[in-house]
Design a protein around this nucleic acid. Structure first.
Lengths: 159, 159
DNA sequence: CCCAAGATTGACGTTTACGTAAGCGTTGAC
DNA sequence: GTCAACGCTTACGTAAACGTCAATCTTGGG
């Protein structure tokens, strides 16, 4: 169990894929793009502990919406400079830029939601006048919500 | 000026482009995809008042994040059915689905922002220890602060 | 020895919404 | 007459992040 922390521990491509729910194709793609550089044992890739950390950073970057090339820049910064202050500052800057961009995106989404809700209200009003029977009801929403709850549904359906 | 409302008024491709800040290429593309069907005067496209409305709907759909094919479905619904109740119901459904998707996206963004802010805080702390001179200054923070206050800010700003 | 499983390297396919010419016709201004 | 401004069609290019073969290799099992 604690083996994960032992630096000499290595990983196969599939182990990392399973652990992080990625595909071999993706890891090779990241390698193509210069984000990873696993060792080789013959032809086979051998991922070190450090490679695993890099992969985590890559996936984290993706979660916050950085592009692969942006992630590569950041990874490169960590590699190039041993001391680590200047590149930390640049990473910080990058992160803040991304945060600002995300906040902008959230605003866009909010605006879209406003437009959508207005449209929904208009439609609901007209439908209520013309064909109230076609108005989706609360019950329909419950189903949607239930559907989201994945496997729990089976229990309910089973009964 | 009021000519815009006169049904017999027609528009050239460029007029609509200017009005809605689109490109001719885009309008032709929409046509290719079956979203528009302007009349022809020889080879030239002649957009009617109705075409203009359709274009508005297209752009509105884009603003809320619908794909062109989704928009086309909705437009088709409006065309097919003369009465207009069933398709209104379906549009309503579509809009609600999109609204749900957008809310999900907003959640994702919020999570990403949380991750980013944690990363920023860690970096700031380390930088403060190692090289405080590299720390970006208050001016850069304004946006961040504004974002943080977002909501409960009014009281504080009032003072 | 033979077969299936899993790894590897190309290399092309996918999707979306256009951008960007290339080549050609028409019209109005000068 | 000729140049610029528009308009048209056809068609290839783009970006992102892989998916999806295809062909080859190795290796453990039976």
């Amino acid at each position: 169990m604690a083996d994960l922390r032992r630096p000499e521990r290595t990983f196969t491509i599939r182990q990392l894929c399973n652990e992080f729910k990625a595909t071999p194709r993706a890891l090779r793609f990241y390698e193509d793009k210069g984000l990873l550089n696993p060792a080789r044992e013959g032809l086979n890739r051998v991922y070190s502990h450090k490679d695993r950390v890099r992969l985590q950073l890559i996936l984290r970057g993706k979660r916050v919406g950085l592009s692969l090339s942006e992630i590569r820049e950041l990874l490169d910064l960590y590699d190039e400079n041993d001391e680590g202050a200047a590149q930390m500052a640049r990473s910080l800057k990058k992160f803040r830029e991304r945060a600002n961009a995300l906040e902008q995106q959230r605003e866009d989404i909010d605006n879209a939601l406003i437009e959508l809700r207005e449209a929904c209200n208009r439609l609901e009003k007209r439908l209520a006048e013309i064909r109230p029977d076609l108005l989706p009801r609360a019950a329909d929403y419950e189903q949607v919500l239930r559907a989201r709850l994945d496997g729990h549904a089976e229990a309910m359906l089973g009964k």
